[in-house]
Structure formats: C-alpha cells, structure tokens
C-alpha cells in the first residue's frame, strides 16, 4: 500500500482578469493516500477552492490548469488522467451551497439515481433502489418518501446529505469537499462531519476537505495543508500543524481564531492584506505581513522544505516560532 491515491505536482491555475493573466494557484504539490482525509485551509482568495476544482477540471470560464495530476483508481501506480475520465469513475465532489448544486426540477431520488444509471448502466428500477439505499446510508430519515421530494422541500442539512448521497452513488475512491458545511448551522455541521468520518471508514474513501475554518479541519482531518497566496505554506499531521505551527502564517492564523475554550484574551489578527494574484512579489509572499521577516525572506524562492518525516514548511526561518 505504498502507492498514493492521488498525486498533484506543480499545479498552476492561470486566469484572465481584465485582459491580464493572474495565477491564483501557483505551484501546488500534494499527495493523498487511500482512505486519508486531507484538509486545505486558507482565507478567501488563497486558491484552495481552485486547487480542489482543478482536480476535476471544474474551473471557472477562462481558467487554465497546468501541472501533473495523477490518480490511481484500481490500486496501481497513479497515472495521468483527463478530468472527464474520473467524473463518476473514482472522484466525486460536493459543494458549499446544495441548493444551487442540486437540480431544482429533479426529484432528489432521481438526482441520486442519475449517476448509477449513466455511469454504471443500471436500470431505472435498480437505480431507484440504490438511491434509497444511499439515502439511508447518509442518514436521511424515511428515504422512500423523501426520494419523491423536490430539493426546495428539504432543509439545508438534508440537501447537503442528498449531495453527499449523489456523490457516493458512483462509489468514488476520492471525495472532494468544497466548504460543504460553511452554510450550515453548527449542530448540522457537526452531524455532517460525523457522517463524513463514518463514511470514510466504511467505504475506504479518501477525502480532500477545503475550508476556511481551521477548527473544523482539525476535528476531521488526518493531514492539513495551509494555503496562502496560491501556495501551500505548510503541510503536516493536522494536530501537529495546529498545536505547533512551523510557518508564521499558520501561527498568525491560529492567533486570530477566537476560541470558546479559552478566555477572552486579545485576538491578534494579521495586519495588511493578502497580495494581489496579479502581482506577487518575489521571495516569501507572506514576508510583508510577517512579524518575523528578515532580509533574506524577500530573496528566497518558494519550496516546501521537510522539517521532519511527515511535515514540511515553506518558511526559511521556522526556528523563529520555537522561541517563547
């Protein structure tokens, strides 16, 4: 089991903005094992969603992804693939807003059954039975009745469960999650996270979960990647990255998160703004906002340097964080 499920190396996404090229994703490399949950954290505009969507070729109009993407559906060596080959055959995706992602003119049962019918050639009756099984699997109460409902008749939490059932209908090896719980209440978010964790174990499915909420990622993920200005600045086991950041950006982000376990100490925030994807400066992109920046920070080239067996950081002076 040493082969990875997914390998992404040197992914770049270029887009046009008012006629000028911008690179919102600039050199992302990552690997994913079978059954692993990888979290990608970052603020708006960090490129986390575009990275995720590049895997399925779902970029906005005018977006071009370049880079080496390899995926192994059958357990062998990961091989290059076309996004259209893995749609419905190994990789599925769920989105943030299930109301816009579900077809409002289709009953939810038919929506879930569409994948098995198209990709697995199931008969209409078999696909319907399968849809009801899947609805039961994702914890939708009275699935027979709900299968005949329209998306607008369901609550936000149930819609997201329908999305997950739809994504699971083609038995994916990899589930891509694009902020699927952001629009939900905490109690429903909690249910969905529990469900994803359970499905991962039961179906041996890997998950890439993109979110701006580090606490959510910490609860769910095995490994965590932090993105800033189109690059991964730190990656490693989720608990280690959260408790002992190796990049000043991660540390600053953690200091901005209000925690309800702690007392109401002053939050730090991060001064300044993220750089514009049309004009990235040379050197470390976080340097202008970094409290620990030194002269050589503006000279360095981007590279994720391993700090231990399972961790890597793009910071050239991670030792600054070790000092109390």
């Amino acid at each position: 089991m040493s082969e990875h499920l997914l390998e992404v190396s040197d992914l770049h996404v270029t887009m046009q903005r008012r006629g000028l090229p911008i690179t919102p994703v600039d050199g992302v490399s990552l690997t994913l094992d079978r059954g692993e949950i990888l979290g990608i954290a970052g603020e708006s505009g960090s490129g986390k969603t575009l990275t995720l969507r590049s895997i399925l070729g779902l970029l906005p109009k005018g977006g071009v992804a370049e880079g080496d993407l390899r995926f192994s559906n059958d357990g062998g060596r990961p091989a290059p693939f076309e996004p259209t080959e893995v749609h419905g055959h190994g990789i599925s995706i769920i989105f943030q807003e299930p109301m816009t992602a579900l077809n409002p003119t289709m009953r939810v049962g038919d929506h879930i059954a569409e994948g098995p019918r198209i990709h697995q050639g199931m008969s209409k009756a078999d696909a319907r039975t399968r849809a009801i099984e899947l609805m039961r699997l994702v914890g939708i109460p009275s699935p027979e009745r709900r299968a005949r409902m329209w998306p607008h008749q369901l609550s936000g939490g149930l819609r997201q469960r329908v999305m997950i059932a739809t994504a699971l209908s083609t038995e994916p090896k990899l589930l891509l999650c694009d902020e699927p719980t952001t629009a939900l209440d905490v109690s429903v978010q909690d249910q969905i996270l529990g469900l994803l964790q359970e499905l991962r174990g039961r179906l041996e499915m890997a998950i890439i979960f993109v979110s701006h909420d580090i606490a959510v990622l910490g609860e769910l993920c095995d490994r965590l990647a932090i993105m800033y200005a189109g690059q991964i600045v730190e990656i490693g086991p989720a608990d280690d990255v959260i408790s002992q950041p190796n990049h000043p950006y991660t540390a600053a982000l953690m200091a901005s998160v209000p925690s309800f376990q702690g007392t109401s100490e002053e939050l730090q925030g991060i001064p300044g703004h993220p750089p514009d994807p049309g004009a990235f400066a040379s050197g470390c992109r976080f340097a202008p906002r970094c409290a620990f920046a030194r002269d050589d920070c503006t000279q360095t080239t981007y590279e994720l340097r391993p700090t231990s067996d399972d961790r890597a950081t793009a910071c050239i002076h991670p030792e600054v964080l070790a000092q109390p």
């Binding site: 978010q189 909690d190 606490a215 959510v216 925690s259």
Partner: peptide, 12 residues
Amino acid sequence: AAPKFGVKKEPG
C-alpha cells in the same frame, strides 16, 4: 457541536 481544537470527530 461547535468544532474545537485538539478534539477529533468520532465517526457517526
């Protein structure tokens, strides 16, 4: 239900 640091989600 609120996500917390240092706590892992239990399946289901």
